[in-house]
Design a protein around this nucleic acid. Structure first.
Lengths: 337, 337
DNA sequence: CGACGGAGTCGAAGCGCTTCGACAACCTAT
DNA sequence: ATAGGTTGTCGAAGCGCTTCGACTCCGTCG
């Protein structure tokens, strides 16, 4: 293992000089810099992370808490995680992966041990028990998601309220009157995960203004659950012609079921999905959708976090404006029979 | 920030004693131990990770390199990542997330800096450029996946060769004669990712023994790609009655297309998927499948790694035996027309 | 022309922890 | 009673790095 001291000796300078070459915190003559950099190359030097963390009290690590559960749509999580990791790296940070499993203790452990300089939390509940800890600590943090009380916090999220409203508007504009929302699994609501409720609120209040009737049904993913849910929807509101699907693992089952029932999409029934674009274009019908901008959320969160770490950056709530892309799954409401 | 020294003072012992209480590396009297533990509680002490790493030259961190690409089925990756993280935590390790993006440099950076004590690599190519580095270093590592040359390496993977064979056997037993393999995206083969080729090899050689005719077609996920692929399959081999699908994002499109063409599953056509069980039961037909045991792979990899870190544990290749579960998507081949 | 300031470098003092050797106190076995 | 072992505790020496103050050159300005 090569140390700073060895590099210094090899380059004929003092250890501190090498350190300053590395950090750029003091000016170094061109000649010295070059000699040092050569020695680093030749010896294959890599600064020791522990020593660096100890001396500077910065680990250059960002902690990322991802949900453990499997009832949330996973690709989105994965995409965010990768976006976070990639952009963190481009700022010189590594990412430590934590699962929600440990809960608030994980927050204590990380802030206490100085393992990470900052953290990003995903899957935030409306009244998340980790929040008080975050407010108390010096350690910068960013939430991906929106709790009920955002005071003293920085949050990044898709504007799910607007997303719901957008769906309502699109369907209303096409002349639909009875619409059904296929929501996330019941557990997601019980846990009071903000995004699901906010979507619904946004959709409902805009629907009221537009004179749409809304039926909301939570739904576990999969074919069987969707089948039951769909039956009950048409049972209760036979005239339903518009669907908004939030649970992505219900999308394909829904399409298959509608097909099987002889209801054509989009001639008889329109479907809007809230999902990443990739999913929308890969489905068995090219789906009109509101995109979940996973990449952007991850990148944005990292950028806020870095800003905070560097002293710029304030507490703020960033709501990304939703965009609805019209594809082949929505069309004018059929003439009333 | 509370330090060891403060705990020591509060408990009326020396710093080294506190350290020994924490590590258990020397015997401590019951009384002292208790006083120290109380002080730790009262003061809310958390050992500083950097200092600990520096002094002990162990960071208690495992690095996990996941693929960046999006052409691989993501839920499996996510599941493995979560399994790795969870079991690492239960052994007292944290997980550092790296994307394949950095390539071999990431390996150098991690081993050089002592940021992690060991690493787990996913998405291993047959002739992966990271392997020489791993063989050269002292740092323990485990691959999830199987390269061409496993000498000096520890690998954990599903036995994809046997998986392919198993699929062939099942279809042969049901009387099918012409089968098609819907493979991963072409890029996966070009990259020489081991699992895809091994599945195919296993399937082909067993098919030869059993007298099955095999048509293999790589396929990007999604409806459009699958539609093209399927057309070409039936064009070339109109008598195809059995499908083995490796690319999970092709499963639903395939089912939808078959339905649309009026081919009933499993009466006219049988479909086997290679995918996590959850996917198989949630599909629009309950799929006969060979499970990808993501959890087990993750857990297993961590256990081997810990064993190596503790000095037990040798280089070995662990191939998990595949299990085929018969569900509703396979049945006897239709009588030849 | 002397005082001054900036650029470039060095030495030394830690950062908070682990770990080694030393030592005191006690408990056996002779 | 004494040698020998255990057991429990302490002090001190680092681990490899950052960073502060100090120092030496220079070039510059009044």
């Amino acid at each position: 293992m090569v140390t700073l001291a060895e590099v210094a000796q090899h380059a004929g300078v003092s250890a501190s000089t090498v350190s300053y070459v590395l950090s750029g915190k003091r000016s170094i003559s061109a000649g010295t810099r070059q000699r040092v950099e050569e020695s680093i190359q030749v010896l294959g030097y890599h600064p020791n992370a522990g020593a660096r963390a100890l001396a500077s009290s910065r680990s250059n690590i960002i902690a990322l808490m991802i949900p453990l559960r499997t009832d949330m749509y996973v690709p989105v999580m994965m995409e965010i995680a990768i976006a976070v990791t990639t952009s963190a790296r481009s700022h010189g940070y590594d990412v430590l992966l934590l699962t929600g499993e440990e809960g608030p203790d994980a927050v204590r452990r990380i802030t206490g041990s100085g393992l990470a300089d900052a953290m990003i939390l995903m899957d935030v509940e409306l009244d998340d028990e980790r929040l008080p800890l975050l407010r108390d600590t010096e350690q910068p943090s960013v939430l991906i998601g929106l709790p009920a009380d955002t005071s003293g916090l920085t949050c990044v999220d898709l504007d799910f309220g607007a997303t719901g409203a957008l769906c309502a508007e699109h369907l209303a504009m096409l002349g639909h009157r009875d619409i059904a929302v296929i929501g996330e699994a019941p557990a997601v609501y019980e846990r009071h995960t903000g995004f699901a409720e906010r979507t619904l609120d946004g959709l409902r209040s805009r629907s009221r203004e537009l004179g749409l009737r809304v039926l909301h049904r939570p739904c576990e993913g999969g074919f069987d659950a969707m089948s039951l849910t769909l039956a009950r929807v048409f049972d209760e509101r036979p005239g339903t012609t518009g669907f908004v699907v939030q649970n992505e693992s219900a999308v394909e089952p829904l399409l298959a079921l509608l097909r099987r029932q002889g209801r054509a999409v989009p001639e008889d029934v329109s479907v809007i999905a809230i999902c990443p674009d990739q999913v929308a274009v890969q489905a068995s019908v090219r789906l009109t959708s509101v995109a979940i901008p996973a990449q952007e959320m991850g990148r944005n969160a990292v950028e806020r976090l870095i800003a905070k770490l560097e002293g710029r950056g304030k507490d703020e709530v960033v709501l990304i404006a939703p965009e609805l892309t019209v594809r082949a799954s929505t069309g004018p409401a059929p003439a009333t029979s």
